[in-house]
Design a binder for these strands. Structure first.
Length: 459
DNA sequence: AAGTAAGCGGCCCCGTGCAC
DNA sequence: GTGCACGGGGCCGCTTACTT
């Protein structure tokens, strides 16, 4: 026994069939509204023209196209859900191009009418696109995988919330738009400045985002490109939301103030932080290894000595990586730091500042400055030289140290300070050698050379 | 003042589940 | 199949309150 064909599929096929015989959208609507069994047969010309006129009157002379469609559907006994499904599933170019023009306003009106059928359809139709975006930003290629076992210092040093927000906004515009609105349901969001019913972003063609672009500009554009008038409006709305009485208070001065743009920037940054956090939780819930946001937060919590209990709770919520993962990240960072120190030291262009560090040795967890069972060790701080200095500048310091006894034995018994050696003396010593040191670019590196000579003469 | 016990937190190891 | 992230258990040290 053959399976019954869904009504929506039959409508789609009917629409595609009608497209091949050059029907306009009003004509398609007229044919759809004429029948409720989806087996659409072109009517005689005079009847079709008559119904078209009726439909046009319904669609364009009522308050909104959707109201007209509802009335027409009611008169003809057609399901509005079937009508919309048929339109949206139709892939014929002649139909889809025309539908794209009329559909945004049509669907916006439908959603505003609080129809259960339309709302359910819209939800199902958009969820798949949200899921698609979520899967896109959780793939490894999207660049949101933290990789706690291989994290490098630069990965954390280069962290910038605005950059992460911009990437998320670009890769998942629908999700970003949805969460931005949900985190500001009272309408103080910059996108809501136009007021009234707006066409949802997922119904707007790419490149026609309007206020959406303004929101990006507020965060990432230059100061002189900010729409200050719009900024003032939004800040006023935020203030009025906090104090509803201010709306009716004639004494409240609403003139633009110098701080409005700054306040809007702060407001936008906080909103961004919330949306980034929510998206980060969703990313990690979708893909366990997609934890870049959590890694940043984990590093912050570790550096601020947050208790493990707090970290565990935040980890369970999905805001940060676990303590175990952070231990792995610290291990990776320590290895990278040690390698970096060795690399710097081998260039001979850095100075070392030595000091003692005391710790309690017999225990597994040493505590600094406990007077019992203390052990001492030598620590060294690596201080990088000016970038213009090269190892060649220090080669002659080493030679001078080895060849001049006055410099090699600088300590005067009557003074505790070491004998100061000028750069000129170093140059005079180097004049007896085969080659001269390269010229120093400015006074700062010269000071660095002398400092290095005092601190680390054996280099 | 010294000793003791409970509570808490950190570290390490191992097994499990998931994504690639 | 491999690598990664995480949870849980065990062990140990530190702190603090209490007792002697």
């Amino acid at each position: 026994m053959p399976q019954p064909v869904p009504r929506a599929s039959r409508l789609t096929r009917a629409l595609e069939h009608l497209a091949t015989i050059n029907y306009s959208v009003p004509e398609l609507l007229a044919e759809l509204l004429r029948t409720n069994n989806a087996l659409i047969v072109p009517a005689r010309d005079e009847l079709r023209a008559q119904r078209r006129e009726i439909l046009r009157a319904l669609l364009y002379e009522t308050q909104t196209p959707f109201d007209g469609a509802l009335r027409a559907a009611e008169l003809l006994g057609l399901s509005v859900g079937d009508l919309m499904l048929g339109l949206l599933h139709c892939t014929a170019p002649e139909v889809s191009a025309a539908v794209d023009l009329a559909l945004p306003a049509f669907l916006a009106s439908a959603l505003g009418a609080h129809s259960t059928v339309v709302s359910s359809f819209a939800l199902n139709a958009t969820v798949s696109r949200y899921v698609e975006e979520m899967l896109k930003i959780t793939r490894k290629s999207a660049g949101f995988h933290g990789g706690v076992n291989s994290v490098q210092p630069a990965d954390l040093e280069d962290f910038d919330l605005s950059t992460v927000a911009l990437r998320l906004r670009q890769d998942a515009p629908l999700l970003w738009d949805l969460l931005s609105r949900l985190t500001d349901a009272r309408g103080t969001h910059p996108d809501s400045s136009s007021g009234g019913a707006r066409v949802p972003t997922f119904l707007v063609a790419p490149g026609d985002l309007g206020a959406h672009d303004d929101a990006i500009l507020l965060n990432h554009g230059e100061d002189d490109e900010i729409n200050e008038e719009e900024a003032v409006v939004n800040v006023q709305r935020a203030v009025e939301d906090e104090d509803p009485m201010a709306v009716d208070d004639p004494t409240v001065v609403r003139a633009p103030r110098p701080k409005t743009v700054k306040a809007l920037r702060r407001y936008t940054a906080l909103s961004e932080m919330k949306v980034v956090t929510i998206l980060g939780i969703a990313q990690q819930a979708t893909n366990q290894q997609c934890n870049l946001i959590q890694l940043y937060m984990g590093a912050f919590l570790r550096m601020t000595h947050a208790p493990d209990t707090v970290v565990n709770v935040l980890n369970h919520i999905g805001i940060t990586v676990s303590n175990q993962s952070m231990d792995a990240a610290v291990s990776s960072l320590s290895k990278a730091g040690a390698k970096n120190l060795l690399t710097q030291g081998s260039t001979k262009t850095s100075q070392k500042a030595f000091d003692n560090v005391d710790f309690k040795d017999p225990v597994a967890q040493p505590t600094v400055y406990v007077d019992k069972k203390m052990q001492s060790a030598i620590s060294a701080l690596n201080i990088s030289s000016h970038p213009s200095l090269t190892p060649e500048h220090f080669r002659f310091v080493d030679i001078a140290w080895q060849t001049n006894e006055a410099i090699r034995l600088p300590r005067d018994p009557s003074h505790r300070r070491p004998h100061k050696v000028s750069y000129l003396e170093v140059l005079q010593l180097s004049s007896t050698l085969d080659s001269r040191p390269p010229p120093l670019p400015n006074a700062l590196p010269a000071l660095a050379v002398l400092l290095n000579f005092w601190v680390s003469p054996s280099l």
